[in-house]
């Protein structure tokens, strides 16, 4: 899954003088207030933070309330979906006109009828609404399925994603992965390519670091990405 990054940031947190006794708590509170909101400076939604040792010196702002400007370094896990990124999420509601998905448990996404590729046919099986691929009977999307889709747009206000299932490498994640494994058995060149992909996946952006301490998404990110690209290549 794309759209996640870890950023090392230099921050200045302004602490009210009444909290001068408990600077650490005040900093955590301030960082906590940034959670699950889109932040233009970071260009993403803060999902987690890890403050490093704040500096011992604080700048005092002149004024009626002499706020303390405490400098600190913090690691932030950011979610920043951009158009054409591949995102994964769980289907929570499905109807002929739309598929509703929740990404990472907090961001809602919708895929409308126009954005579901022709291959998927809407059916009602055993009283359940499903989209089944007409090429691969086992490729189906129903409530509870984890789907991989392409981002069309992102509403920063309410963190709402509009997505599409038109590209061929989108759909049910389980099916896509199993299918790619089957194919990889026949393809001898894949392993080599995978190895090169792995090295290429290591972030190149100076500001962005993938750290071992945040392995959950970063690790997933690497393996999934390579598989997906392999699919795309084929």
């Amino acid at each position: 899954m794309e759209g996640l990054k870890v950023a090392d940031t230099d921050l200045v947190v302004y602490v009210h003088p009444s909290k001068a006794k408990r600077i650490k708590d005040a900093i955590l509170r301030e960082l906590g207030s940034m959670l699950f909101k889109f932040n233009e400076t970071f260009d993403g939604v803060v999902l987690a933070y890890e403050p490093r040792e704040p500096s011992n010196l604080a700048k005092i702002l002149p004024g009626i309330h002499p706020y303390l400007g405490v400098k600190l370094k913090a690691k932030l896990l950011l979610f920043h979906p951009k158009p054409n990124m591949l995102i994964e999420g769980e289907v929570v509601k499905l109807s002929q006109q739309s598929i509703h998905v929740v990404v990472l448990g907090f961001s809602s996404a919708v895929i409308t009828e126009e954005d579901i590729r022709e291959e998927f046919k809407y059916k009602i099986k055993h009283g359940k609404e499903v989209f089944v691929s007409s090429f691969h009977k086992r490729h189906r999307i129903e409530v509870g399925t984890i789907v991989r889709f392409l981002v069309k747009s992102f509403d920063e206000e309410i963190l709402h994603i509009s997505g599409t299932l038109v590209p061929a490498h989108t759909g049910c994640v389980r099916w896509l992965e199993r299918n790619s494994e089957e194919r990889s058995n026949f393809d001898s060149g894949v392993k080599k390519r995978m190895a090169t992909e792995e090295t290429r996946d290591i972030p190149y952006d100076e500001n962005v670091m993938v750290d071992e301490s945040v392995p959950l998404y970063a690790a997933n990110n690497r393996t999934k990405k390579s598989k997906r690209r392999k699919n795309g290549d084929e």
Binding site: Q97, S98, S108, V110, T112, D155, E157, I158, H160
Partner: peptide
């Protein structure tokens, strides 16, 4: 429900 789910603008 559909409106709220379809577009972030309608949620509020």
């Amino acid at each position: 429900t559909s409106l709220a789910g379809s577009n972030g603008q309608f949620v509020d």
